[in-house]
Write a protein that binds this DNA or RNA. Structure first.
Lengths: 349, 349
DNA sequence: CAAAATTACAAAATCGATTTTGTAGCCATT
DNA sequence: AATGGCTACAAAATCGATTTTGTAATTTTG
C-alpha cells in the first residue's frame, strides 16, 4: 500500500510523523512508545491494553521510524555494497539479478559501483561505501586490493585475502566437460582463449584447462593460445585476437572461448575470415548468457549458474554479517549445454 | 587513497574519529571545528591560523563526518532511487551505465530496485526508497502509479503525471527512418511487432509507426501485426509470436521488431520456419544493444542513444533536486544503423 | 506490617553531526 | 565613560530515534 494512498481526502497529506508526535497523541513518552514498538525486553512490563493502543496508533498514523536516526543509533543500515567492473554484459546482469532478489526479499538494499578496473576508483568506492555504512561487500569479478574491514563475498574472484569467501565455479569440471565434448567430436587441434589479465577468473580457468588437457592426453599448442586484452562487455572483445589468429593459422578445428560474449565476437571474426562455424571451426562459449541460445548458430557453452551464484553470494554475505563463519570457497557446478556451434571435426584442407 | 593505507605500521588502525574527539585534540569545541570545516559564514570570524590547524588535524586523522548524523541533521542524502523492471537485458544495462557515470561523478549513489511489473512491488519499493531518504527517482521503462512526492525523471515513460520529466525518443523520427529504409528496399508487405502492454514505449512507438506509414502511403495489414506478451529480457520474447505468424502467413517481406532482443528471437523463429533472413524476410531491430552488431546476421536497427539517455536523466534529476524547472519531455534522436538483416525485397513465392 | 519486588511509565543520556545562541575580552565611538 | 561592535570561541539546542536510569504506585513476600 502506498503511503500517499493513506491520506484521506479531508486530511491533507500529513507531514511525516515522528516518534515524539506519535507519543504526544498517545499521551505517553517517546521512550515507552519505542519500547513497545520494538518489543524491547522491558515491554513485558507494559499492559497489553496499552501496547494495543500504541500499535493501533502507529498503524493509523502510518508511523515509520526515521531511517537515519535509527541507523545513527543502532549502527545497522540494511545496506550492502556491490563492486562490479561494469554494469553491462550478460554476465554481471545475471549475477546481479540473483543478488538483488535475495537481498530485497529480506529488506536489504545495495549500492552499486563500477570501477572499470581502475584501482584508484576501486579504492575510492570501497571507502565511500564504507562511509555510507554498508554492512558488507560483494565483489563481482573484481580483484580486491586490501584486506577488508567488513564481511566480503567475492563472485568469481580467487582472491585469497583472509576473511573473504569466494563463490567459484568448479573450473576443472568446466574444463573437463568442454574438452570431453570436443574430443568426443574428434577435435584435436583446439585453440584456446585466455581471459583478460584483470579478470579474476582468467588464470584459474586456464590452469584448469591445461591440467585437464594433460589428463585427457590432449596437447595444447602454445601458438593456438590467444589472449584477450580489451576492457569491454561487447562481443568486440573477442574479435581482433581471433581474426588475427585465423589469418595466421587455419589448421585448428575448434575454439574454446573465454565467455559467450567473446565467443560471439569470435564467430563473427571467423566468418569474416571465411571460416564457417561450426563446419570449419567449432566454438564453445562460457556462461550461457540469455542470448547464447538465440545466437546464430546457437552457442554450445559451459553454463555457469550465474543467478544462483548471485543468490548464494547474497545469502552468504548476510549470514557473515550475522557472524556466521564460512569457508574461503563455495563451489558451484557448471553444465555443458550442447547447441549448434559445435559439431564433429571435419578433415581439414 | 584507501583509508587503511592511512594507518602507519606503528599506529594500529584507529577507531573512526568523531568530531568530538577531533575537537578534543585541538582543544576546541566541536561547534568551532564544524564551522571551520564546513566554512560556514561564521567561519569568517576565526583567524586563519586556527583554521589551518583544524584543517591539518582533520587531514592527519582522516576525519570524515558520519554520514548518518549528517543526513539526520541536514536532510540531504546524496542518494537517488532507480526503478527498473528488470536488471538484465541490454536496454536497461546501457541506460543504467549512463546514469551511474553521471551520478558517481558528483558523489551520488543510487538504490536500484526491480519491480518486474508487479504493481504492489513497485509501490512498496517506492515507499522503501523514500524511507531511505532518496532525493529523487529515475524510472526506467516503468509506469508510475501515483503522483510522486519527489523529483522524478522517467526514461522511456510517457507518463503524464504532473511534475515528471520524461526522456523520450523522437518516435516519429524513429518510425520514419525505419520505414523509409524498408520502402527504399522496396518492401511493401511489412509485419509489425507491438511491445508488451506494460512497456511504456509500446503505444507511442506503434502510434508513430501508424502515423508515419500513413504519411508514406504505406498500408498496414492488421493481420500482420503481432503483439508481444512475455515478460522477459531474453530473445525468447519475440520467438513464439513470430513463429506463429510465419506459420500463418509467408507473404510479408519485412518485419519491424519491437527491440533488438525480440528481433533476435524473431530471426531464430523465422529460420526455424524455413525463412532466410534477410533474403526472404528483412528484420529491423530497435535499440542497437551492444550485441546487435555481432549477431548473425548483424542487425539493422534504430539506435537509441541509451547511455546518453541515462546520463541526461541523471543530470536532469540532479538539477530538479536543486529546484530547476524542466519541461515534461526531453526528446533525443534515434539513428538508423543499416547492417545485414535487411536487404532489397525479393519477389515472393 | 515493613521490606522487597513488580508494574507502568517518564526523564535523561546517547548516537554524531550542524546551527543558533551566548559570552568574555578587546577596541573604537560619541 | 558608557555604548556598541568585533573577535574568537564555547554552550546548548536540534535532527529522530534507542536505551539506560529513575521513580511513583502497587503488589508480593518474609
Amino acid at each position: 500500500m502506498s503511503r500517499n494512498a493513506e491520506s484521506t481526502p479531508e486530511s491533507p497529506p500529513r507531514k511525516r510523523m515522528t516518534l515524539k508526535t506519535l507519543a504526544g497523541h498517545l499521551r505517553l513518552s517517546p521512550a515507552t512508545v519505542s519500547i513497545i514498538l520494538n518489543q524491547a525486553p522491558s515491554a513485558k512490563a507494559i499492559p497489553a491494553a496499552t501496547q494495543k493502543r500504541v500499535f493501533d496508533a502507529a498503524r493509523k498514523f502510518d508511523y515509520r521510524p526515521d531511517y537515519f536516526a535509527k541507523s545513527l543509533r543502532e549502527k545497522r543500515t540494511f545496506t550492502i555494497g556491490i563492486l562490479v567492473q561494469d554494469i553491462g554484459g550478460g554476465y554481471g546482469s545475471l549475477v546481479l539479478s540473483g543478488i538483488e532478489k535475495a537481498l530485497l526479499e529480506v529488506g536489504y538494499f545495495y549500492f552499486l559501483a563500477s570501477h572499470h578496473h581502475n584501482k584508484e576508483l576501486l579504492g575510492k568506492y570501497n571507502d565511500l561505501l564504507i562511509d555510507r555504512g554498508v554492512e558488507g561487500l560483494i565483489a563481482i569479478d573484481t580483484e580486491l586490493l586490501i584486506e577488508p574491514v567488513l564481511p566480503v563475498v567475492a563472485v568469481s574472484g580467487h582472491t585469497s585475502l583472509p576473511g573473504v569467501t569466494s563463490v567459484v565455479l568448479d573450473h576443472e569440471h568446466a574444463a573437463s566437460s568442454a574438452l570431453t565434448h570436443l574430443i568426443e567430436l574428434r577435435h584435436r587441434k583446439i585453440a584456446f582463449m585466455k581471459g583478460q589479465p584483470f579478470s579474476s577468473d582468467s588464470e584459474d580457468r586456464f590452469n584448469a584447462i591445461a591440467k585437464v588437457a594433460g589428463q585427457l592426453g590432449l596437447e595444447i599448442d602454445p601458438d593456438l593460445i590467444i589472449q584477450l586484452e580489451m576492457d569491454t562487455s561487447s562481443p568486440e572483445l573477442g574479435y581482433p585476437a581471433v581474426r588475427e589468429l585465423a589469418r595466421r593459422r587455419t589448421d585448428f578445428t575448434a575454439l574454446l572461448a573465454f565467455n559467450d560474449i567473446s565467443a560471439i565476437g569470435a564467430i563473427r571474426a571467423l566468418r569474416d575470415e571465411g571460416l564457417r562455424v561450426p563446419e570449419d571451426v567449432s566454438v564453445i562459449g562460457f556462461d550461457d548468457i540469455e542470448s547464447a541460445a538465440f545466437y546464430n548458430p546457437s552457442l554450445t557453452t559451459v553454463r555457469q549458474p550465474l543467478r544462483q551464484m548471485g543468490a548464494i553470494a547474497a545469502r552468504t554475505l548476510l549470514e557473515k554479517i550475522q557472524g556466521v563463519a564460512f569457508p574461503a570457497e563455495i563451489a558451484v557446478q557448471p553444465e555443458l549445454i550442447a547447441r549448434e556451434s559445435t559439431c564433429v571435426a571435419s578433415p581439414r584442407r
